[in-house]
């Protein structure tokens, strides 16, 4: 995901129009996971579910392999991606650890210490 032209925001994905267009089908898949019925259908055959939502091969791989960073890079919005993480029993702190390159425990500790004020 690219920052808008001319912007300089290191370490900060910007969910812009290009990202949103790119990720639209994948984000719709994530949003569908609000319902128990959809979660069951997804769990029963993740690949078929991805095909139903017409994900690109890269997006499908990212979803199947739970490559959270790739989901962001391929146009996922974090609020949408989180629906899949919740379904897996994972927390926003777990995801924060993945994105920032630390363990969930270290990420939680950093927040308890007042958040990452130096990045």
């Amino acid at each position: 995901m690219t920052a808008p032209a001319g912007h300089d925001l290191p370490g900060t994905p910007v969910f812009d129009g290009r990202a949103s267009r790119r990720g639209l089908r994948m984000n719709k898949l994530f949003m569908s996971l609000r319902s128990a019925e959809s979660r069951e259908r997804f769990a029963a055959d993740e690949r078929a579910y991805c095909e139903e939502f017409r994900l690109t091969p890269e997006q499908e791989r990212a979803v199947l392999e739970r490559d959270w960073q790739a989901m962001v890079d391929l146009g996922g919005s974090i609020f949408y991606i989180y629906k899949l993480a919740m379904m897996d029993g994972l927390s926003m702190q777990y995801l924060g650890g993945v994105f920032s390159g630390m363990s969930e425990q270290d990420f939680r500790a950093a927040l308890m210490a007042g958040g990452r004020t130096d990045v």
Binding site: P10, G11, T12, P13, V72, I78, I81, Y82, M92, L95, G96, F99, S100, G101, F107, A110, L111, G114, G115, R116, T117, V119
Partner: peptide, 15 residues
């Protein structure tokens, strides 16, 4: 208030 959920800067807080 300040927060960031994704990216290398996830967990950012600016008191």
């Amino acid at each position: 208030m300040s927060h960031q959920l994704a990216g290398a800067r996830a967990g950012f807080v600016n008191p």
